[in-house]
Design a protein around this nucleic acid. Structure first.
Lengths: 110, 110
DNA sequence: ACAATAAATAAATGATTGCTTATATGTATA
DNA sequence: TATACATATAAGCAATCATTTATTTATTGT
């Protein structure tokens, strides 16, 4: 049997991983891409058209989002479909938006 | 009676405010400060000691957190006490940590 | 094999940002 | 008012990052 340790979910909060994620959300184009991908997987060119940014810039930000483990890629013919890894990403984004709205609404109070 | 508009919570998500908050969370020292302030209000010097950073650096990050509306200041004698504006900040930080843990745990799957 | 389209990569640049060192401001106390 | 302590501010520097332009790689259809 297991003597000392058991595999446990780490409940010690690590600044590192939080920063890792926050950095990925700390750019307007990336947030817009995430919000767009919340509707479903899309190609690079679709995102380029939708967001009005250059193709290399879109590729760059998608690469960042992939580095941050937020999206996955899937090829279909000549197209690459990018997709959010998990729906919780959208949830967090909404939560951040809610909190921001709250903070701004109450900013004069303090 | 009210004819057309009613005061409503904006449910349109704004990238700007999300980025605004995410940027504040995109630095390790700031996240550590937030986590420390989750335990209650603290002075600058207390934070400096606790985190092992220089006093000007602590001041600088506290200023950023204030800009991001995440903390408030209160003077007591020569001391300035910094405090988290709202407990939801801690919640968001926990949520980010959870999501990061999940993403890392499943990173090989994709 | 060639042309056309989709997307990634590379290099260069400017802006932002974190950090250090040095200095100034504010507050209390002798 | 002089000294000590708490904190903020300023200036300078190096590193990171977002963006652009140019080029390359990959895929499909002719």
């Amino acid at each position: 049997m297991n003597t000392t340790k058991k595999p446990e979910t780490p409940d010690m909060i690590t600044p590192g991983s939080i920063v890792f994620l926050a950095k990925a959300l700390a750019d307007e184009n990336r947030v817009r891409i995430i919000m767009s991908l919340a509707q479903g997987k899309k190609t690079v060119s679709a995102l380029v058209d939708e967001m009005g940014i250059s193709q290399p810039l879109a590729s760059h930000h998608l690469k960042e989002l992939k580095r941050a483990l937020l999206v996955t890629v899937e090829r279909s013919g000549p197209f690459l479909y990018y997709e959010l890894v998990d729906s919780r990403i959208t949830t967090i984004v909404s939560d951040l938006d809610e909190l921001a709205a709250y903070l701004l609404a109450n900013r004069t109070t303090f």
